[in-house]
Amino acid sequence: MNIKKKNVESEIFTGSMADISFLLIIYFMLTSVMSATRGLDFELPKDSSQTPEIKQEDSIDVHIMANGALQVDGKQMSIDEVLPYIKKVLKQNPDKPVILRTDPNATYGDMVNVFDLLRQAPEKIGMPIKTISIPTQREIQNVWALFGVH
């Protein structure tokens, strides 16, 4: 008896590939979110248990008031006047740190606005601010306590 051999061609069935691909696209479109992935960075002191010695005459004191107004070394200033003033001070002492203090009732946005401005010093005034310190209320109170002010 003659047996006929049937030649079955081997192939991968790709008919459902388009469906799977579309399902994947829909999944990625629904789950991916356009999120912000950038921000302002700052390094914290390596040992924060040591209270930094803050002497007003050795630093530039930038104080953000509750209403968002600025005082630099006790003088009322607009935000545009801050960097020119800092430039003047840094010319005499380029190592002077800037201490950024913010009133607890001010907004976080006010602080970020000023911090961003201080970080732009190299481009705007041609001199970098070597140290920008953002002390917390606890650290400020510790310093006042050192001077006997409560």
Binding site: G39, E43, L44
Partner: peptide, 15 residues
């Protein structure tokens, strides 16, 4: 303050 107490080294302020 909590992050400083926990000895965090680098912080990013998302913007």
């Amino acid at each position: 303050d909590a992050l400083k107490q926990a000895k965090v080294r680098v912080i990013y302020l998302l913007s």
